[in-house]
Amino acid sequence: MRVKRIIGHGIGALILPLWVAVLSAEDSGEGPPGERAAVEEIIEQYIASQGGRERMKSLRRVELEGRMALKSQGLIIEVRQRLESPDKVFVTMEFPGLGTVREIINGNRGWEWHPLTGTRSLEEREVKDHLRDADLQRDLRLFEVYEQIRLAEPEEIEGHMTRHLVLLDREGKEEHWYFKENGDLFQQVRDVPVGPGGEVAIRQRHYDFTTVEGFRFPKVVRIHNPAFEAEITITRCQINPEFDPAIFQIPPSGL
């Protein structure tokens, strides 16, 4: 922490109690006055790096196509994701030797179809995770979305000195975001829901940034968990395409 570094530089014993008080405030989630400004600066830079606040406000719909490779497993999964802000998602995933999985989120309801398991309604937590993606203006409201955002020690990752934020969500779960000097989000460490009631901790790193219609995003995402690694490559991105509303309709079996 910045506070600790100042103490480390040899400030006299007389002012120590003052700093202890500041530390306490930080621990309670308030943060020292300078910290909030530093956090805001990092987030503003992050928003600017993506194309800017005004451009992001204009983002209503996105279609992404790509593939997820589990190279060591010999598996490549084709993914197509259509998002309509704030609460609609349609995802298809083609698994070799298995078939196509479909997931639809519409409002607070979610549905999936899998060749092996058939249909089911998604559970609340799973829907919530999908809505995180569907909310295309989420990054503009991080201070609303998270209970607390703290500045943590910078870290060097793959030769880049990154600025590190700790985000505490409203359920008390921590996420760690690491930003490059230019504002790009380079690494996230968080838990992601996996099926009903499950979750795994992942570290994802972002590479090969590209720009489409003024929006900058990583084409390659590498995911790591102690038990597996995966790489997602985005091959196509469409900004604000027209979608047939029918694709977001949950079939009667999911109601």
């Binding site: 589990l70 298995l98 992601v192 795994v200 995003f217 990583p218 995966a230």
Partner: peptide
């Protein structure tokens, strides 16, 4: 940020 979510992972893990 525009990212395909690591959603397929859940199927890989559930599949075993």
């Amino acid at each position: 940020m525009l990212i395909i979510k690591p959603n397929p992972l859940k199927w890989v893990l559930l599949t075993g």
